[in-house]
Write a protein that binds this DNA or RNA. Structure first.
Lengths: 227, 227
DNA sequence: ACCGGCCTTAATCAAACGTTTAATTAATGG
DNA sequence: CCATTAATTAAACGTTTGATTAAGGCCGGT
């Protein structure tokens, strides 16, 4: 009688993702320049040549880290957008929650290295260097454009420039909530927890929606005055 | 007849500040780990040993870069707070403009390396590593605490935790406006200019105030329900 | 003229860096 | 069972890193 046969590929898969997760932590904590491939390999428990074997070089290793996570987040955001607009036009709160919740939740997922990715994504979100912008363009611009269009359908008074700013504001909000720098806890003497995902989402959505409506009104008034 | 005597320190100051400004650009563009002292010295037009002569090591060089700029910003913010509360309690819009304007303006000051510092400060504002948090604690926590207290005086309904979050949100907004990553321009097909300082300040203040009031209301409602 | 304190220099150090190589081991398919 | 492929290893490559050293130039004061 034959045993249930396993895929037998014990060796490969472990190393590949171990490197990826170690790299995620290293890039998040020390930046691209500060992270060293040697340390990444050491912490992953693999030979340092394995990093190049699987990912060629440091640049592509970085891209691979971002690619994996951005897929996880943006698939959820795209699905949520599909569902929301299927039955007409949703409310602004629903829309913003659909956009921000996946980002916040993955950052709060301690068991799967969420906080490390949160710190990483925050760092490169506001970075102006060519590598960061290329990665942002490839992995985050498509969902950004779709989100901005959705925001303008939900709040018609929102001009394109205001919508872009609002989107970037909202993302920046959500990211600042994910990156547990310890500063919020320090400044609030421990009152700000930020481990409560639901409260975090609620705060981000409330703040963002109010801000967006304010920009929409401002835009409206300007148009009325000048038109 | 004696000539008007100058402080005579012609030699020193040039190299000192040349290093500081070169370092500011390097740290902003490549991060702490990615920036090299050799490149910093080269771009400053000095021997690389001069960097250690004036700033001992890379860590203190970084601190010196932040110290200089944070002084410029926070002196202005402190003065504005003093003036605002001299004649009673100001409005929220006035308060937030006092807090955000200096930050935004220094980031827009192209002639004096503002954009470089903007990118630098954005990068380390959301960083969780020990060095960044130590620098933040030393150079930005005092004004942060004072600002948070001021916000609660202006909006009494704002709880402490909400005030801390609001402050961090608002700063995060202003910073995302300063860091000209090119992403806003790209996503808006050039519509978002961000070089217009007044419009930038107005947008940030409007968005932040609306968000803060939303969090204050949310807090109020919760208290009423649970009390 | 000479001294003493800044400022500046070129040269050097050990350590760490990213990357490549050649050789070894383990699994797969015919 | 052998040939092929994939995974892994130790070692080394040349370069760059942060930091230190010793030597000298500049300049006002005496």
């Amino acid at each position: 009688m034959s045993q249930a046969r396993e895929p037998v590929q014990i060796r490969q898969t472990d190393s590949r993702t171990a490197i990826l997760e170690s790299a995620e932590r290293a890039f998040a904590d020390q930046g691209f320049g500060g992270a060293s491939i040697r340390a990444i390999a050491r912490e992953a428990g693999v030979n340092q040549a394995m990093v190049h074997y699987y990912y060629q070089n440091k640049d592509q290793l970085f891209r691979s880290v971002v690619a994996r996570r951005s897929g996880q987040v943006n698939d959820r955001r795209n699905d949520a957008l599909d569902a929301l607009f299927q039955d007409g036009i949703p409310g602004l709160e629903e829309l913003m929650e659909a956009l921000l919740r996946p980002t916040i939740e993955i950052g709060h997922d301690d068991a799967h290295g969420g906080p490390a990715y949160a710190r990483l994504i925050v760092a490169f979100n506001n970075a102006a260097d060519e590598r960061s912008q290329n990665v942002a363009k490839e992995y985050y611009d498509p969902i950004a454009r779709r989100s901005i269009d959705a925001m303008r359908r939900v709040v018609p008074a929102l001009g394109k420039a205001e919508a872009v700013r609002s989107y970037l504001f909202a993302i920046s909000l959500a990211l600042s909530l994910m990156a547990k720098t310890g500063r919020a806890a320090r400044l609030s003497d421990g009152l700000c927890d930020d481990s409560d995902t639901e409260e975090t989402v609620a705060n981000a959505v409330a703040f963002a929606c109010a801000g967006i409506r304010a920009l929409a009104n401002k835009n409206n008034i300007q148009n009325r005055q000048s038109g």
